[in-house]
Design a protein around this nucleic acid. Structure first.
Lengths: 213, 213
DNA sequence: GACATCTGACAGGGACGTCTGTCAGTTTTG
DNA sequence: CAAAACTGACAGACGTCCCTGTCAGATGTC
């Protein structure tokens, strides 16, 4: 019998790390490379070959983590999305001021992430609809962020806020619209400073999500 | 001397129409075909070959009107954009009610154009950022529509409206956000009827562009 | 130390789209 | 009726990217 004693551990350590660790690290490098390329070169130039070169890996390892180019693109979009969602949530939790102050904290956290690494900003605000797969994911994310905004607003503004489906529709407009504005701001097409962009967002969120008094 | 008597008219009639007429008609067919393909098949499948086949013309005539694929794509986007701008302006001029009623008339005209021919809706709300060239044109159009909205709002709402740069920024959010909402509505992801979508837009426009009283 | 696995480099088939060129047949002009 | 322009069909070079496969060398286990 040439059968191995155990047929489950088909991976052996290498360089001191297990197979799973190595694969995870490679995947991370590939995602980071995809984010960098998407945000600097654009979707069209973010080819599999380019991603592998940027990550310092060969095509074989690409297929280890992704079924194809689209999966890497959506993974990059997901990574940036969860990062800003986490940042916004953490900022809300860390803030203990008025609802308006909490909104500003959350928007400030988002704006800071996207402007500190402009590649992430461009990826999220511009390249996120450059591809059919990205577009589908972006739509889902807009819906997710809209729900997030509606829920948070409801708990922040209480009775003063819309609720239910209407709040969701208004939030969609805010999320997509503010993303566009931030994108233009990152491009230098909007003459505002960081605090003004945040304040503008807070004002608009209040105007859009709160009921007329 | 074999020189022609006149060197300017290097085109002769054919089928009863002048060269310029024929070229213009072919260009129109190509633009219509591009709109149809962009709006039904998506940007990726809107290849030059496909556009020519859809228009019933051969590649040579493509280059008669466009330098390349990108020019045809942006021409299609421009055509739909001017159509809805004209429709909105005509609706405002035809309406003689309150500012709110005029806004509803304008938004209704836009929504009707985009829902009557869903291809135009998808093209404008989804595929308009599927390509680097389209994205650049879309950004310019968002700015243009935002100025349009700000100007119209200013004349409709008078002192109650923001003015200047701030109005422009708010209008960008409204234009991009409402486009997203209409796109979702066209996809069937928003459970509203036509009038509700229009009213929602009118409410949001008022909330976004008017000063808090 | 022998053997299996892992890694990186690279070559090349296959598919697709762009763009140019040719060629026969039709319509118009002189 | 001849010459010139117009039209439509099509072939094929060219470039790019996706994806698979091979191969030598490095690193591990037994």
């Amino acid at each position: 019998m040439v059968q191995p004693d155990q047929q489950d551990p088909p991976g052996r350590p290498y360089g001191g790390r297990s197979k799973a660790e190595r694969a995870a690290e490679r995947r991370e490098r590939l995602v980071a490379a995809t984010i960098a390329l998407l945000g600097t070169q654009g979707e069209a130039r973010t080819t599999m070959t380019a991603v592998c070169a940027e990550a310092g890996l060969t095509e074989r390892y690409f297929y280890e983590s992704f079924r194809g180019r689209d999966e890497a693109l959506t993974a990059a979009l997901d990574a940036v999305s969860t990062e800003i969602a986490d940042a916004a949530l953490a900022a809300v939790r860390a803030s203990d001021g008025s609802p308006q102050a909490r909104v500003r904290a959350a928007l400030g956290a988002v704006v800071d992430v996207l402007s500190t690494d402009p590649a992430k900003g461009r990826l999220l605000t511009r390249e996120s609809s450059a591809n059919a797969a990205l577009r589908a994911r972006r739509q889902a994310l807009v819906g997710w962020f809209a729900d997030f905004v509606a829920t948070q607003s409801s708990s922040l503004f209480g009775d003063q806020a819309w609720s239910g489906a209407r709040a969701g529709h208004h939030a969609i407009v805010f999320v997509a619209g503010y993303a566009e504005l931030v994108g233009s701001w990152l491009d230098g097409d909007v003459a505002l400073d960081r605090d003004q962009v945040v304040d503008l967002g807070a004002d608009l969120l209040a105007a859009v999500v709160r009921r007329p008094t």
